[in-house]
Amino acid sequence: MGNRHREKGLTVPKMNLSHFEASLLFALFTSAVLGVITKRTDRERVRYAVQCFAYFLAAIFGLSWLMYLGHG
């Protein structure tokens, strides 16, 4: 009985994301980090982050269509 309150532990709000939303958020934050750590000036960093994000998007849409067409 005493341990009943501890069974669940830390509770955080639950979030249900679709594949697309989760991929988009992952792409956004990863692009930001890659931009910051790889380039030397702020201008280059922003440019590279946007470029990475665009590549992520292209990969998401490209692979999604590939899987959709592959399934027939």
């Binding site: 955080v12 639950k14 979030m15 249900n16 994301l17 989760a22 958020l25 934050f29 980090v33």
Partner: peptide
């Protein structure tokens, strides 16, 4: 960025 990715991971259980 790291904080938000981690929090999203927790919120997605």
């Amino acid at each position: 960025s790291v904080l938000l990715v981690f929090l999203l991971g927790l919120m997605m259980r």
